[in-house]
Amino acid sequence: MDALLALGSERPVPVVIDEFPYLARANPELPSVIQEALRPLRDQRAASRSRLLLCGSALSFMGRLLSGNAPLRGRAGLELLVRPLDHRLAAEFWDITDPRLALKVNATVGGTPAYRREFARGDTPSGPDDFDDWVIRTVLNPETPLFREARYLLAEEPDLRDTALYLSVLAAVADGNATRGGMAGYLERKATDIAHPINVLEDAGLLHRDADAFRENRPTYRIAEPLIAFYHTIMRPVWDQLERPGSAARVWQASRRRFTSKVLGPHFEQVCRDWALHHADPDLLGGLPARVGHGVVHDPRARTGHEIDVAVIGIADGTKPPLLAIGEAKWNDTIGIAHIERLQHIRDLITQAGRYDTTHTRLICFSGAGFNDKAVAAANTRPGIVLIDLPTLYGQT
């Protein structure tokens, strides 16, 4: 460490230690060594202009470096979490202008920049009609680095010991089991047995916990990395076939319907929620969102629950937080007047429950397939109804 600090004795020098978690695993004392080297009153530090950058892809480990009583707490001048590109930036980075194609690619590989050039070897779909061929020749091709990337992502996390169990938890979520009880039933285990794997996957940034906007203590989970969701839904069940050259086209032909329902549909819903939180004009929503989620609204008379894909909650300025908007997101369905009437009924149920202020709640319909004439007429003549299409989600209108 003294030698690294000495590099900056005459001028500022960046010193980068990449994949720091692996180095610290080999020498657990390393953070304490760095802490001592960067002690404020130490002569070597005072005379050095070295800029030490500790980098790592293991989110759980890197997140603990500066927390609580960690040795390096108070020593850092910058803590930077490099997030994947969102759907808009990813489309720009992949040079895709067609919003429908952009969302399908984003649902497959997510927003990690390296996946375009290094892992996909610079191969991008030439147009909407090339998507299927691109999946076959690149994503499902055992000769590309992208093919095994989803399996290797787990190996980057030092806290993941029994990888088979963690893979099974992710597979359960990918198959639609979004609750702890659902995962436990899928794995034929007790809910308490999978509590630790869920927490570790959350810390690693591979699993995301979403609170139900309308029911307390009813969280659901989703896979945070689209490539992992695609792998567990499409690739893992037929892995032995895919490893055999020439099988990709046959597998993809049989998997396209599952891709639409299990991968593309849920991803579209999440993009709609991200758009409402980060991109939507507050005037369109009737205020600035404090959080955007989803949930289930109970109908006591019908004794059933109604799922809400998008729930936009504003900043509380009184006894009740305002519910700015509720929305329905349909990837492959044309939105009609029945969808709007359903949202109106659900808004009435939320009003009766009394948890949110629904005085100005707007109804938003998201569709990847468009809207029929009655829906368009309702949006044009009745206040509080908003229709959002794919170009709008991508900022093209």
Rank of each mutant, 00 (worst) to 15 (best):
A329Q: 05
D357T: 04
T319F: 15
G318E: 12
I340K: 03
T358P: 01
I313E: 11
T351C: 07
T359P: 06
A325M: 00
H345T: 07
L324H: 10
A325W: 08
R347V: 01
C365R: 02
A338L: 07
A325Q: 04
K320V: 07
R342D: 08
R355V: 11
Q344L: 15
I326C: 04
I364V: 14
T351P: 06
G336N: 05
R342M: 01
E328D: 04
I335N: 07
E307P: 08
L343T: 00
I315W: 12
D333Q: 14
I335S: 07
L323R: 00
I340W: 08
T361G: 05
W331T: 06
I313T: 09
I335F: 11
R362F: 05
I337D: 08
I350L: 06
V310S: 09
P322W: 01
W331Q: 14
A316N: 15
I346K: 10
I315C: 13
I313A: 09
I350A: 09
L343N: 01
A353F: 10
Q344G: 13
V312L: 08
T334R: 14
T358D: 03
I308L: 10
D309E: 11
I346M: 06
I335R: 09
I337W: 03
L323T: 00
V312C: 11
E328F: 01
G336E: 03
D309S: 10
L349Y: 01
I337P: 04
D348R: 14
I313S: 07
G314S: 04
R342W: 04
P322F: 03
L363E: 10
K330C: 00
I313L: 12
T358S: 05
S367K: 05
A316D: 15
D317P: 05
D348I: 10
D348V: 12
I315K: 13
A316H: 15
E307S: 10
Y356P: 12
R342Y: 00
H360K: 13
G336V: 05
G318Y: 13
L343F: 01
I340C: 12
Y356V: 00
T319N: 15
G314F: 09
I335Y: 12
A325F: 01
R355W: 12
G336C: 00
I337L: 13
I364S: 07
W331F: 15
R347M: 07
G327W: 02
P321G: 04
L324D: 01
A325C: 03
R342I: 04
E341K: 08
I326L: 09
H339Y: 00
T334H: 06
G318L: 10
R362K: 14
L323M: 02
T359Q: 11
I337N: 07
P321Q: 07
G354F: 08
L324M: 00
P322Q: 05
T334C: 07
I335P: 04
I315R: 14
G336L: 01
T359S: 14
D317S: 14
N332W: 13
I346Q: 13
A353P: 04
G354A: 05
E328S: 13
V310P: 05
H360V: 10
H339Q: 10
K320P: 11
A325E: 09
Q344Y: 13
K320G: 09
T334S: 00
I313K: 09
